[in-house]
């Protein structure tokens, strides 16, 4: 790749661009900024994880505490993504396919968790289920553990990942309209047949997109989970929480080894997201012609 690519090769004056030195300054500024603030932090994760070699890395990941954190993270993510998948599809069906008053308000409510600090997302469940919370005494009386246990972690995760699937589907389904569903109904299909044979195939990429982002957030959530988890070693530590604990104990290789798994999850999610966005754009093109 040569520097020539930086410039417009045609001799004709392009009215829509800046002089070459200006262009180079702008590109350099953007790239340096992104490198310092994004690329280096990402690189440091892997550099630290492998700073004592591959065997130390593998050992860190095969530690029972690490394995338990991985298991818990997968469990919590599965439940959260599953429930928000079902909710998201139903919400999108009701919101996108029907007209009713208060629709904008409902969408705002669905979006709400995006504007709530993760710490507050955890706090609300402490206030409900904690020892001094509204349901705390009753739960204690019945020996049910929500807070500092898996149910609390799952609830907080569902809260922070609540909007992802619905948000990915609502605009897509609104744009697709109801004509294909009406056609299916008038051809004698039942509601479920219509959904599974007509609606679902049309929204599958959008659905996957929502699930992907929902999953990434569910596995990576730190603030909300940190508040409700209680940090019980080997029991209520998810991967992000274990990263924190090990880091604070100066076990950098172990901490960054787990962090590197989460970073890889983020990278895979990004790649898949890019591919899906391209798919969705293509879908849009097909509809437009």
């Amino acid at each position: 790749m040569s520097l020539q690519q930086l410039t417009v090769s045609a001799p004709r004056v392009d009215l829509r661009t800046e002089p070459r030195p200006m262009r180079i300054v702008i590109i350099a500024t953007a790239l340096i900024f992104l490198t310092v603030f994004v690329v280096l932090p990402l690189a440091v994760v892997f550099a630290q994880a492998f700073s004592r070699g591959v065997s130390a890395y593998v050992a860190a990941l095969s530690d029972p505490e690490a394995l338990s954190a991985i298991r818990l993270t997968l469990l919590v993510a599965t439940i959260s993504v599953g429930s928000n998948l079902v909710f998201g599809v139903m919400a999108a069906w009701a919101i996108a396919k029907f007209d009713f008053s208060g629709k904008t308000f409902l969408i705002t409510l669905v979006d709400l968790p995006f504007s709530v600090s993760p710490v507050i997302s955890g706090l609300v469940f402490v206030l409900l289920f904690g020892a001094q919370g509204y349901f705390g005494p009753w739960l204690q009386g019945h020996d049910i553990h929500v807070l500092f246990a898996v149910p609390g972690i799952t609830l907080a995760t569902i809260f922070v990942t609540f909007p992802f699937v619905a948000r990915a589907l609502i605009p897509l389904m609104q744009e697709q309209g109801t004509q294909e569903e009406e056609a299916a109904i008038s051809l004698g299909a039942s509601g479920l047949q219509t959904f599974f044979r007509v609606t679902l195939p049309n929204i599958k990429w959008g659905l996957l997109y929502g699930v992907l982002l929902c999953n990434a957030r569910a596995m990576g959530e730190f603030g909300a989970v940190s508040v409700v988890s209680g940090h019980i070693r080997g029991e209520t530590n998810t991967m992000p929480l274990l990263v924190e604990i090990l880091y604070n104990e100066y076990q950098f290789v172990s901490s960054f080894a787990i962090a590197s798994l989460l970073a890889m999850l983020a990278l895979v999610t990004l790649v898949a997201k890019t591919v899906l966005e391209r798919r969705l754009d293509e879908g849009q093109l097909l509809r437009d012609d």
Binding site: Q179, E180, E182, A183, A184, S186, R197, V198, P201, N202, L286, R287
Partner: peptide
């Protein structure tokens, strides 16, 4: 019913 924009299942 034949829809104006056909509504074929794409």
């Amino acid at each position: 019913f034949v829809f104006q924009h056909y509504a074929l299942f794409r």
